[in-house]
Nucleic acid binder design. Sequence first.
DNA 1: GTGAAAGCGCTAACAG
DNA 2: CTGTTAGCGCTTTCAC
Lengths: 349, 349
Amino acid sequence: MPRMAQDRQKQDRQKQGGAGKRVTMAAVGRIAGVSQVTVSRALSDPSKVSPETLRRIRDAIEATGFVPNAIAGALASQRSNLVTALIPSIINITYSAFIRTFSQRMREAGYQILLSETGFDPAEEESVIAAHLSRRPDAMLLTGIHHSARAKRQLLGAGIPVVEVWDITDTPIDLCVGFSHPEAARAVADHLVARGHRAAATVTASDERAGRRRDAFAARFTALTGHPVPDHDTRGPASIGAGRAGLAALLDNEAFRAGVVFCSSDLLAHGIMIEARARGLRVPRDIAVMGFGDQDFARVLDPPLTTVRIDRDRLGQVAADALLGRIACREDGQAISDIGFRIIDRGTA
Amino acid sequence: MPRMAQDRQKQDRQKQGGAGKRVTMAAVGRIAGVSQVTVSRALSDPSKVSPETLRRIRDAIEATGFVPNAIAGALASQRSNLVTALIPSIINITYSAFIRTFSQRMREAGYQILLSETGFDPAEEESVIAAHLSRRPDAMLLTGIHHSARAKRQLLGAGIPVVEVWDITDTPIDLCVGFSHPEAARAVADHLVARGHRAAATVTASDERAGRRRDAFAARFTALTGHPVPDHDTRGPASIGAGRAGLAALLDNEAFRAGVVFCSSDLLAHGIMIEARARGLRVPRDIAVMGFGDQDFARVLDPPLTTVRIDRDRLGQVAADALLGRIACREDGQAISDIGFRIIDRGTA
DNA sequence: GTGAAAGCGCTAACAG
DNA sequence: CTGTTAGCGCTTTCAC
């Protein structure tokens, strides 16, 4: 900030009066007739302070509107009560829904969550990780299992519990909770072939995990049926519009005319249903659709969407518990949790 | 297998010094052969340090994996470079989409965002505000204009810039950017009546602002047509499923048989389209639908959804700029910004 | 049950 | 250009 602006700001804050001096524990103590430490104790463990003193301190806090300075507390105690989380996208319900469960669980345990988006970009992630680490979080949540070497080093150096979610690996940085994407995709291929499908295509959003599902699906489907699996890459985030465009492209290219489309998300699948209907094609008779994620709308579409359920709430919960366990130094909890997946057979495939 | 990975992990942490000594500026300085302040300067303003010294410091940082301690920095400088934001729901795209724009803008200016949900509950909001204030943010964003008296007092006492978004008032705490919900709702009523609609109903999610829109809409529509406007309250968050259930309830109650349904969100409107079609009703011939929000899917539905557009990106941008302006002490920026709304006429009403 | 003293790791003056 | 000296507002530890 330019020097002048800074000076002016200082003056303004002082003029504000109420804002000039923020209330400190020392000030509260002065009013209550005790020392600063006693105020600290009254807040952190009231039982260590006599009832009478406690009352005076509480009155003083109320009168001054004192709000403790967590920054100073964190510096002194070396505990920030902060947990940071990185997700690819905040507007993608897949991630935001499980972050909500995770946050709630952590908040109940007294932690606040610092959340950032990384936008599916490893370089971006690296810089965000460093920024987060500078806040000295007590633990950290990362999405996915691929991180730059530098980021891993810093994470290890931080000496805090780290949980990687939404994927699974034998070699996590620390903790890991998720499921195997290739395995899920192969299960989908097996399922669709068992149901009699002999032609398939995929529509896939820009997401490394989605890409691995597509590859595993195509490999298995082709192995089983001998037919290639054309793919449409949305080159962007999943959306209903991208799904419509995806089916349109597949059909117009004549790479695909009928069969089942396996999508990397329910949103895409929904778009495919709309596009199919707009073209006078019947779902699932002409075009069958398989989603991924089992978002809340999947069951209320018409026909209801066949998809793969990932228990996001459980994922958030298990991730939080794993971290909490590590923080409490219970090293006994298992480091790797596979929460699995489940094919939900409904009306579109 | 987990066991081995776990053991390996444990060793790694111990070797790393686990909870051991984190690298400090003093340590980096020692290695580079300079004092701690010089390291600080090298980081905050490299031009103040000789090139040769800078090189040695950078090498030392690289070698040690040093990550600056923002906690200590914040305590010393009285600037946290943290901005906190409260939104009702993280999984509601309405809010998460604009938070993304806001965050990006703030990040470019060097701020990190601490985000929390308040879940539409004022009491919850109050406690979250206090928790956020304890982190000594440099600014704060609040959703809506209704806050508890205690919360307002603490906010004022904090002496930081505060912006209230998604609504508008003549008496903001500090800054305010949004639009008038009753005004938007009345404009919708005028528009629908002008298009010939004489019967209307509403489907409304649990959200104070949505409720105010419904009330203003019903009052205007009735004043214009003489007909009452039945409402279905979803008693919960907006969703496609809630929209379907809403139309079903309206129709089954016989409070409503044909006409236009004004929804508090596009998601609800989408559900209504699905339910109407499932019942063999034509949209918009039998049931017309008006959404709210103009989410990305609105234009790709079939028929495309008529709705009200709120420029969320602009909202996020203006909110960020307002805050940044205040932080830089440019008191000239206007305190209240009305970003307006726009009726987007498409195929459903 | 309460207080005094000693930092936590950094930034902000002020010297040199 | 670089170093020294003071804190920032708490928690911790040790006395009393």
